[in-house]
Design a protein around this nucleic acid. Sequence first.
DNA 1: TATTGTTATACTCTATAACTATA
DNA 2: TATAGTTATAGAGTATAACAATA
Lengths: 153, 153
Amino acid sequence: MPQSDVIHAGDATLRNFVGYRMKRAFNVVQADLTKTLKPFDLRMLTYTALVLIVDNPGLRQSQLADAMDIERPNLVVLIDELERRELIVRDRVPTDRRAYALRATLAGRQLYEKAVAAVTLHENAILADLPQDLRTAMIEALKRIEKAHRGRS
Amino acid sequence: MPQSDVIHAGDATLRNFVGYRMKRAFNVVQADLTKTLKPFDLRMLTYTALVLIVDNPGLRQSQLADAMDIERPNLVVLIDELERRELIVRDRVPTDRRAYALRATLAGRQLYEKAVAAVTLHENAILADLPQDLRTAMIEALKRIEKAHRGRS
DNA sequence: TATTGTTATACTCTATAACTATA
DNA sequence: TATAGTTATAGAGTATAACAATA
């Protein structure tokens, strides 16, 4: 471990390479998040989908894919999994029979409550050492990066 | 697009969920980075490996895997690829015949120069709209998150 | 014609166990 | 015994093309 720290600290080219820094930080956050969600049999993607469905009852799969920033085909298997576990249902939309309105079941909402509580605890633990101003600045910066590039494509 | 923005903006649960924010921002950065590196026939991982080898000549695969935060088996195929393209070489280490000292070839260093220049441009474009203080704060926050968790595992 | 959801598919990244050759 | 690199493999995430049903 000390060796890799030396390599890393001495590397001028990568030090402020944003993609590299984001990847490393995201890796640790996601690894920890995966562990946090394991007891609920959820992964980051299934968790995010469940949260968005509970908070936005009736939304369509295409809207959810958009909100999650994933391709529609990749969402299908996530929804399949949540439906198979009876955490959500696909309701037909009377006004547009191509689409499905996604809604959480009671079991889905109950799992949501427990998982959100666990994730909140986990995030607070991760950010415990971060001064509030750094935390706020980071969130703001991440939002702006996302927005700026969303505008281009 | 406006629909997903509404959903997203109205979602209280995920708004400040750090893992979610990081993932979305990282997604756009990585997608853009992938495009930037395509003309050089590099991906984020091969680019990072090449940069670290050029900047730290003679380092071992295990050190590189550590620095890149990936598992040794996954590094092997990356090194195979860079070696096959004659961008780097695996030199035997006389004092430890199990290990390899990784070094860039002239072609590797030339590709490095061009790719680093392109990535630097790309990053500056991404961060152009970010005030310097936000940019600095974000990098600092990302480093701290990474360090804090590296200490635990 | 365009859109919603779907199937199939392929590529990349990640993670683990087990092997070899050296130490 | 432990370590460096390797092989094999499996799981997860991502991306694209093409299709059926519906608008």
